[in-house]
Simulated assay, not measured.
Amino acid sequence: MESAVPPSKISALSSREFVGITADNPDCKIELKTFHSEIINDHDALKKEQDTYQEIAPIRKIDNTIIQGNYLQIKQDIQNIIN
């Protein structure tokens, strides 16, 4: 199906544009299967919403020692299962 939306069409898209193809069922035919559209954002509303965002409080501090310990424990658990 690559020829239905050729690479030249995809490479010519501008930011926020998208193309696609959808499939239908024999009992539920879709007349328009290909589409080309653009996402339009209300940047003022998005900015207002983002201004109300709050930082997520950290649950716990993780460092490389904890990650390495978890990694080694998982490796050991797998080795125990294999044996």
Results as ranks from 00 to 15, higher is better:
76 Q>N: 15
45 A>Q: 11
55 E>M: 10
22 T>I: 12
13 L>N: 00
16 R>A: 03
26 P>F: 01
45 A>W: 10
16 R>E: 11
27 D>E: 05
13 L>C: 11
40 I>S: 04
33 K>W: 06
19 V>I: 15
76 Q>I: 02
71 Y>C: 02
7 P>F: 09
43 H>M: 13
51 D>S: 12
60 R>E: 14
13 L>S: 09
54 Q>R: 00
30 I>K: 09
50 Q>T: 10
78 I>R: 10
41 N>F: 08
71 Y>N: 03
30 I>E: 10
6 P>L: 00
66 I>W: 00
70 N>V: 04
74 I>W: 03
3 S>D: 08
71 Y>E: 07
1 M>T: 10
45 A>H: 01
75 K>W: 12
19 V>H: 06
9 K>M: 01
73 Q>K: 11
19 V>M: 07
29 K>Y: 03
35 F>T: 02
60 R>A: 03
40 I>M: 13
73 Q>F: 04
78 I>S: 14
24 D>Y: 09
19 V>N: 02
12 A>L: 02
13 L>P: 03
31 E>C: 14
80 N>G: 02
81 I>P: 03
56 I>M: 11
60 R>N: 08
15 S>M: 06
5 V>R: 00
61 K>V: 13
50 Q>P: 05
55 E>Q: 06
64 N>H: 09
25 N>C: 11
75 K>H: 00
62 I>P: 00
74 I>P: 03
51 D>I: 05
56 I>H: 02
5 V>A: 07
67 I>T: 06
30 I>G: 00
